[in-house]
Design a protein around this nucleic acid. Structure first.
Lengths: 344, 344
DNA sequence: CTGAAAGCGCTTACAG
DNA sequence: CTGAAAGCGCTTACAG
């Protein structure tokens, strides 16, 4: 299993700017100018310097650069869960926007762990990034607030802004409303909302939206089912519990707080002989692969992750470059994607 | 949609170590010692310094630190596709290992784009990371080689090592062998291998492994079907092509080079009335969500992503800390996960 | 446009 | 154990 290849390489001392200057026969300042203000250097010297850089294999030391400048050409993004495709969409959107401004994105995964989240915020601050993007877990934001207080721009992604930071969010309440309204529009009246824990603010807001939709229709009812989690496993439990009920006790329309929850529930209910959507229509949430690749494609509420990322990056860039900047929360609307699971 | 919250915050000048020293009534060197060699400072001074750090909200400038030390307490990981759960598993494994050594992981997504890959390698080098992990695309590794030549340790992940770098790979040939052997063991004889383009080395190796398995069985045959991609869409096309064939022309066992390809093909074939596994047994590759969440759970060859990440991190740490280091390629074995799609 | 010099914020011998 | 001083590799006025 272990195949040796070679011996260690020595690694001669790396060339620095003074080496380049000497090699090119110019002063240190001129080398710096070639790198930072190329237009003010005569073409002849510029080319000589560039050639020396190539021949020596010079790479600028950004630690030294950042020390002088005060910050790096880099933005850090602390993400709560890189395993969730929504956050990957966000990162893609962020990167696309930053790319156009020649800024590089560094990603860190807090893995739903508050102390890791704080540690990475600190790493980014210590690295002198130009700014920080934070998709936080549902918990206090002390570290972020402290960093923000020290003048490092921080933008919340999928989390509202506050007096110190901007935020880009999706309207969770509206998402819950759209899901329930969709089922009501199809004539269903005995709805259920499943998800949990309800202490998570996104879940609570989706529930509030579903509740609002139901109150708009006279004879409609909404049953709240709190689950331990919104994972596939949580869905299995949910499906089992619903299957045990008599047909009259069962909701005819289900709003699940995630696609994973919906997929798990549908799978269990199918085994119990409950047909989706005929016996029960289902709407999921997140519009991720569970919704699209499920054996019964699942109607789902989707967040515009890519666009959220772009906007968050724009807001951050604005805050980085402009002296005066009013903090704001930007709320994007979710969209309902109709599929088979609610086609009644 | 835009909700204002507050006015810009001034951001007084950030305290530096000399401020802490003055505030605590000690010298600069003592503050540095409290941070780097706390045991050699008397408890009383140590506590005074720590209190001053807290009261002033001091955060060490790592750019300055890295400038002196020569490198940062950070490792960079350039990943070819953060949207692929295999690479997320890798990143998780890497992080777990680095965590134990107090080193932070910075992630960058090259997005299957060579120039982005090179740019991020450069960013990491300029940031003076202690080392770089690279899960590259199937293309020349010029930038990595150059960086490596300047003394920055680079470890390849999911790519073999060479004279300048270690590598951690999974045995693709063995994976292809396991998949085909599994079908042969079930009595199937008219196999097909689908995937592509065959120019990708991982695909070519899987095919080679499948070929080896088939040559071990006298009356078995293997048909090679090159697809444009290994995506779900590629699977649709593949399924359609297979459905058009007469039952005698059709393979009775299919090795697909990815789960997405397998899932797409199965979906299309089912619509055409071909039963899986009864009419055709299918084995996928990657053991990702397509395999597990498909309506017909798909037998799949899985790579030990998490463990690969851990090992890659270990190798990198070894190279960072030890002067003499022999480069090597570590090859891990894949595992076959049996599911319904091949249960004949 | 070019070059010499100061300074960014740290760490590390080195002398006390 | 503590403190003064040098130096890491850059950028940026500033004088020429």
């Amino acid at each position: 299993m272990d195949q040796m290849n070679s011996t260690p390489s020595a690694g001669r001392p790396r060339p620095v700017m003074t080496d380049v200057a000497r090699h090119a026969g110019v002063s240190l300042g001129t080398v710096s100018n070639v790198l930072n203000n190329p237009h003010i250097v005569t073409q002849e010297k510029r080319e000589r310097v560039l050639r020396s850089i190539r021949e020596l294999g010079f790479v600028r030391n950004n630690a030294a650069r950042s020390l002088v400048i005060g910050r790096a050409d880099t933005v850090g993004f602390v993400v709560v869960d890189v395993g969730n495709s929504f956050f990957i969409d966000l990162a893609r959107g962020v990167e696309e926007e930053l790319d156009e401004h020649g800024i590089r994105l560094l990603l860190a995964n807090s893995d739903v762990n508050l102390s890791k989240q704080d540690a990475y915020i600190n790493v980014f601050e210590e690295t002198k990034v130009a700014g920080i993007l934070l998709a936080p877990l549902d918990a206090p934001l002390e570290a972020a607030r402290a960093t923000r207080g020290r003048g490092v721009p921080v933008v919340h992604v999928n989390w509202p802004g506050d007096q110190d930071a901007c935020g880009v969010v999706v309207d969770e309440e509206l998402g819950g409303y759209l899901a329930a309204r969709h089922l009501l529009d199809r004539g269903l009246r005995r709805l259920a909302f499943a998800g949990g824990p309800f202490s998570l603010s996104a879940i609570a807001q989706r529930l509030a939206g579903a509740t609002r939709a139901v109150t708009e229709v006279d004879d409609a009812t909404l049953q709240k089912i709190e689950t331990r989690s919104i994972s596939v496993r949580g869905g299995y439990d949910l499906g089992a519990a619903l299957s045990e009920r008599g047909i009259l006790d069962r909701p005819d329309g289900l709003v699940a707080a995630s696609d994973a929850l919906a997929a798990g529930a549908i799978q269990t209910m199918q085994l119990a002989g409950i047909r989706v959507p005929e016996d029960m229509a289902v709407v999921g949430y997140d519009n991720n692969h569970f919704a699209q690749d499920s054996s019964i494609p699942i109607t789902s509420v989707g967040q515009p992750g890519h666009e959220m990322g772009k906007i968050a990056a724009q807001v951050l860039l604005e805050e980085i470059s402009s002296a005066s900047h009013a903090h704001r929360t930007i709320t994007l609307a979710p969209t309902l994607f109709e599929r088979v699971s609610s086609a009644v």
